[in-house]
């Protein structure tokens, strides 16, 4: 049951991270393609967004390995 719990935790967290990262990256690509001179600020915003989105799946991976 521990392995199942770990798999569900990592799977759902990865799903959420994938959706979140996809939204961030798509908007950044759109913004930079429209205005290449805004590459710096958009990259910074993307960097912070990706960092915040990925904190939760990293916690999930840690918890999954601890319950296994």
């Amino acid at each position: 049951m521990g392995a199942l719990a770990a798999a569900i935790a990592v799977g759902l967290a990865a799903l959420g991270a994938g959706l979140g990262n996809g939204m961030i990256v798509s908007r950044t690509v759109e913004g930079i393609a429209r205005q290449p001179e805004l590459q710096g600020p958009l990259q910074t915003t993307m960097f912070i967004g990706v960092a915040l989105v990925e904190a939760i799946p990293i916690f999930a991976v840690v918890i999954a390995f601890m319950v296994m």
Binding site: I32, A33, P36, Q39, Q43, M46, F47
Partner: peptide, 10 residues
Amino acid sequence: KIKQFGQAIV
């Protein structure tokens, strides 16, 4: 990775 990504789009 994010720097490479931005550079690739430009």
